[in-house]
Design a binder for these strands. Structure first.
Lengths: 236, 236
DNA sequence: CGTGCCTTTGAAGCAAGTCAAACAAAGTGG
DNA sequence: CCACTTTGTTTGACTTGCTTCAAAGGCACG
């Protein structure tokens, strides 16, 4: 918890990306209804919380990226979620974290006490409704991901992932940032790093994407990419 | 909605399996706080609601089994959930159903109006808290299923499925009921019916299960089955 | 008592995994 | 600042577990 005041408002007017109406704030002076947040900075690869620890806070990503993951008994790793700037993570269980969270890149977060959130939900019917919709949306998204993991080919998974990242990306530098490694992508998509790499090469050779470097690429043909992501669905 | 009064309390004292504290009731006279339910009966294979329709009610299964599923553009089907007696389904989206629901066997359900639930949550802080915990639990369960679908072998999936069914089954007749077909199981586990059949044969030859008939089997060695479900985890 | 669906089993094909090696990038220490 | 190490990426060759295709048997339902 070093001084990161500079980082507490790097994006002027933090869009309340998710959840939409929840009065999270990093400026405690804004009013009694707001949930006060505490900024923190995490080095690349460092653990933010451990699997099995009590859930005491939620986090909103200010900058960088976070992976929410679990090590399986056989040594494999599974990534449940990537949290990008503006997004919230940390509620991966009821009482205890069922996953751990790690910084994919150096990351600046704002932490909100869980009890503050719960108090707010009890106090503010509108916030409660918004939270309700948020969790419902997350559940619906989870079911879509079941389909992705359950019966999609490698190409479909990777294409879907790229489009999802693009949809979630903040308007910023030209091109699509891939903060995570091929291994991270693989563990998120239920593939291997080799397959992810091969698939990206395939999409590149097919002219759908251009790879600037290992952590940045460009979507050249979103229509065909969408076709690759969901065969049978019409291109945009 | 034929007369099914006989079916409205077939299990004396419907265990409030899920969600635990929600005041669902099929006896409207019990008090103002309760959410009144309306019974209905559905023939094997019939549609309970369609994908894309508005979410107006939730359902609790009284008897039978229900599958919540979606047809994919390429003709494949994916099953997101099986609802067994005592369990609740129908909230697979925010405003519209993102899946359809069909009776796996002849099924008796109780339908609860969504607005009644929401009114209850607004009115009763305890119910709201309980609902909150329920959705959180569902979300956590979803993440476990990601792992199953993302990086588990056919044997692990089937073993896990059988143990899950056994844990959810009502105490009743000896043995484990499998109301669904091999195709249903396959579409739930992200496999093919052939692979499910082969895997069951494998488990049977390994002495872990005994197959009474196509819709009923017995778990002979839960310990080894758990090992088969999660390699690296200790047997019970 | 047929007819159609479900289940089981076999054989062959294939997509993704595994193993391996070369290369590139990022981080470390002199 | 550069050499060195480590980590990540790409590509190739091979293996494998699941799917696909096919066919026979069984059960359930009209």
């Amino acid at each position: 918890m070093p001084n990161v005041t500079r980082a507490t408002k790097p994006a002027p007017g933090l869009p309340p990306c998710l959840p939409p109406f929840l009065p999270f704030t990093d400026r405690p002076e804004r009013g009694g209804a707001a949930i006060p947040g505490r900024p923190s900075r995490h080095l690349r690869g460092s653990e933010i919380y451990a699997e099995g620890s009590a859930i005491r806070q939620l986090y909103r990503v200010v900058s960088g990226a976070v992976r929410v993951c679990r090590m399986l008994p056989d040594g494999r790793r599974f990534i449940a979620q990537f949290a990008l700037p503006g997004e919230v993570f940390g509620l991966d269980g009821v009482e205890e974290h069922r996953f751990s969270a790690e910084a994919v890149t150096e990351a600046v977060l704002i932490a909100f006490a869980r009890r503050d959130l719960e108090a707010c939900l009890d106090r503010e019917p509108l916030a409660a409704q918004s939270w309700q919709a948020y969790t419902l949306e997350k559940l619906a998204a989870a079911q879509d991901r079941f389909i992705l993991l359950g019966c999609r080919s490698a190409t479909e998974r990777v294409a879907h992932f790229l489009l999802d990242l693009a949809a979630r990306a903040r308007p910023g530098r030209e091109g699509l940032a891939l903060p995570m490694s091929r291994y991270d992508m693989a563990d998120y998509l239920g593939l291997t790093a080799e397959t992810v790499s091969r698939t990206l090469t395939l999409l590149r050779k097919a002219g759908m994407i251009a790879i600037e470097d290992n952590h940045r690429l460009h979507l050249l043909d979103t229509g065909r990419l969408m076709q690759a992501a969901e065969p049978g669905r019409a291109a945009a």
